[in-house]
Amino acid sequence: MRAASALILAGLALAVACLAYLSLGARGDWGFVLMFRGARLVALLTVALAVALSTMVFQTLAANRILTPAIMGFDALFLLGQSLLVFTLSGVGVAALGAYVTFGLETAVMLLAALLLFGTLLRRGQDISRMILTGIVFGILFRSLTQLLNRMIDPNEFTMIQSAAFARFNNVPEGLTWITAGLTVAVGIWLMSKHRQLDVMALGRAASMTLGVDHDRQTRRLLAAVALLVSVSTALVGPIVFFGLLVSALAHGLAGSWRHAVLLPLSALLAGCILVASQTLFERVLHLQTSVAVVIEALGGLVFLAMILRRRKT
């Protein structure tokens, strides 16, 4: 079975990457090294899982393999929520709330806005070029609004948001690691339990309705899950636009199957593999601190271009 061997290989590769990340170049007390690196590894794996699952599910809902939540401006929406919070509550107020409450509020804003904006869009939008265009317009709108807010905020408070606006894999906010990991795993389990229904929904709205799936209601629920996962990854490492696309393109290519029972776990394993391996390579071997995000984005961007060009040909 091609799908089974792809899953096993990706699992092995991920295990090797994790071992390398934990052990390479480690000196001194192993207990401390493992605890310190272990927490960061959990954060990386959480991001990988969140990006992979949110992308796969969103693509199923949009019936399209080029669109991803990031391309449609989901993470820009999360950053807007973040700025909005600092703007209304002031930096001191947000700091006083603590990491958990802030994350909770940001996620709530995100959920609400995502359901309002993308719920109706997905229902109507069958025209792909228009969907991409809408996503780009949304992205620009959210980013411009964020910038506008940032200009109006006190410069001292602006520094609070500034660090969140760029993708970074090196300094992950530690307080959030465990709760987001738990949340992501819970959402992941819920999505896996729906893998058969996702298979049907991939056939499209009309087809899944004739097969007895309440498509509109399920779309709202799944969209909420996607928004939650995007909140997690954006809160941990900032916006990463093309990583999800890279992962989903690889997963579809390697799986050779339409079943979400294969696609969801495979994409998660691949995402973890790419993220941990490249982080190991850049941080431990090449000693470059900042380039991981840039390289992953560049690769993903190339995949995006290739997919659009290939689409035009056929």
């Binding site: 019936a63 991939a202 056939l203 499209g204 087809a207 339409w258």
Partner: peptide, 10 residues
């Protein structure tokens, strides 16, 4: 239905 475009490769 008449327009029965199928997304996944089945």
């Amino acid at each position: 239905r008449q327009e029965g475009a199928i997304g996944p490769r089945l």
